[in-house]
């Protein structure tokens, strides 16, 4: 790991002024991704601003039934929090399906939003990667790409977004609050991550001098009946091949509310709006669920090692939605 200047920020203003004064600075939260990337010399900040002492570790109820989560809340604490387990079970489950007990104790909510891809060529500094080195080329297209995306890819990048938590946040229409010396703004989580296009190294809407301070999750009645399912190469402690976050509310046999997002298959946490459109007011049947999944995946582009994900995603979406129905075909 290269040397760097270290600053432990005592308060938010100090952190924001420090980052605006230093062009090659990184905020350090739990370190589970950044420290690893620095050790591999993929990230080489001159200055590291430790934000773990900032007062951003609270989970609070919002008026109207939503929840505000501080950016430094640890993943394990959020997954176990009674408000999250009760109102947004899909979010608790998504977090618990990521990483390990040890990593979830370290990793923060803000860091999870900003974690970088696990595409093997992004990590392999001997191979070309447009995300790591703009213009270098993409080794994944002709190489090993089992764990890359089938939705939202470009000729420049196939890398899948690795987060489980973000898939649930996308389904829940969460918003990210970010702060800089220029002020505060809120970004819908579905706009926070960018498609790779011709600039796969630009991964989010966050400016270099902005700090993620919180995530706000709006109230959603259907979220009480929600689930996360993750399909992977081993039973636990592995990134997703395919994952599905879903919330479902059925009334008189028809879908009243359906929220759907996919992980493992998208270059960003993939909100399945096309599937939701098909599901709107459709009969709550397996056939309709399948049609919705198919509509979402119509745009998917498979390659030799990852084309299997398209059908796997379709079947997983259908299975998760079916699981959200009670035995009489309604929702609780």
């Amino acid at each position: 790991m290269r040397s760097f200047a270290y600053l432990s920020a005592p308060d938010i203003d100090t952190a924001l002024h420090a980052v605006s004064a230093e062009p090659n600075a990184k905020f350090l939260g739990g370190g589970t991704n950044l420290v690893d990337l620095m050790r591999e010399e993929i990230e080489q900040p001159d200055t590291v601003i430790d934000i773990t002492r900032l007062p951003l570790a609270e989970v609070a109820e919002l008026p109207g039934g939503g929840v505000r989560v501080g950016a430094l809340v640890r993943n394990s604490h959020l997954a176990a929090h009674p408000l999250i387990r009760e109102r947004y079970p899909v979010l608790s489950q998504a977090i618990l399906h990521g990483a390990s007990g040890q990593l979830r104790n370290m990793a923060t909510v803000g860091g999870n939003l900003l974690q970088r891809t696990r595409c093997v060529y992004f990590y392999d500094t001997a191979s070309p990667c447009n995300k790591r080195e703009p213009g270098a080329g993409c080794a994944a297209a002709e190489g090993f790409h089992r764990n890359t995306a089938v939705l939202g890819t470009s000729e420049h990048c196939l890398a899948a977004h690795p987060s489980d938590m973000c898939v649930a946040l996308a389904a829940l229409d969460a918003a990210v609050e970010v702060r800089s010396v220029r002020g505060v703004r809120r970004i819908p989580v579905t706009d926070f991550h960018r498609l790779p296009g011709a600039t796969p190294h630009v991964e989010s809407d966050l400016a270099p001098d902005e700090l993620v301070t919180a995530v706000e999750i709006p109230p959603l009645r259907a979220a009480a009946n929600s689930r996360y399912r993750k399909v992977r190469d081993r039973a636990s402690y592995a990134f997703a091949l395919v994952s599905v976050a879903a919330a479902l509310e059925v009334e008189d046999g028809r879908v009243r509310t359906a929220r759907l997002a996919l992980g493992g298959v998208g270059t960003r946490p993939w909100r399945a709006r096309e599937a939701e459109r098909v599901l709107a007011d459709a009969p709550a049947t397996e056939e309709a669920f399948d049609r919705a999944a198919e509509a979402e995946l119509a745009a998917a582009v498979g390659r030799p090692d990852n084309a299997f994900k398209i059908d796997l995603a379709r079947r997983t979406v259908t299975a998760v939605l079916r699981r959200l129905l009670t035995t009489d075909g309604s929702t609780p």
Partner: peptide, 25 residues
Amino acid sequence: QGACGACTVLADGERINSCLALAVQ
């Protein structure tokens, strides 16, 4: 690199991977 757990220690009673923890933190 946080993939095996051999470095697990307890920080104020909570388990963490000490390989991904900077001592200064």
